[in-house]
Amino acid sequence: MDVLLNNLDIFVVGFRTTLVLFVWSALFSTVLGLIVGMMRVSPVPVMRGFGTFYVNLVRNTPLTLIFFFFAFGYPKLGLPEFSYTWLAIIALSLYTATYIAEVLRSGFNTVPLGQAEAARAIGLSFVPTMTRVVMPQAFRAVIPPFMSVLIALLKNTTIAAGFSVHEAGAIRAYASERGEPAMIVLLWVAFFFIVLVMILAYIQRRLEKRWKVAR
């Protein structure tokens, strides 16, 4: 307990940064994943092609490589400069969006084709067909795998520690400088991650219950 209490400042800063990375990345990757997921079921071949290209390219690249690109490649491109934290958020968002797009696409596929056909037959165009008819029915099937992706995202934030972002994955290094035993520190870090994941699991259960009633 002393290890935690004596280094509370490191823990607080670390997990606060982790949460910042997680919340922004979850938000951006969900929005981007939604767009890419819809592209992949679009009736327009160019959109489908782009969606497939993006998913295959980014999903098949190791996350660490994407971080390398944003940490070392991006600043040389002469584009607007971002802090390392924001570069980490961008890397995590682009990467996670591919998984979210695939989760959503499999969710869309659980909705019988007749539902979309009926929506098109009354004159709804593609986007309202998706948002008004297909997505509300896909959500329930999507919640468990979607939460798994978010949990993976939460843990992936620790890779940012290797790129000068002081988040939870970096706590051990800072604590070691003060001579704290690494094993105990890491156990505490793991404990807080479990707490965070349990919160996500709780949200998942709530959402599943809510959408079950909606049927």
Binding site: G114, Q115, E117, A118, A121, G123, P136, Q137, R215
Partner: peptide
Amino acid sequence: LRADVGMVFQSFNLFAH
């Protein structure tokens, strides 16, 4: 154009939600 063409399906396809 589809808005002007009504369609009734074999499997009804009412919006389930």
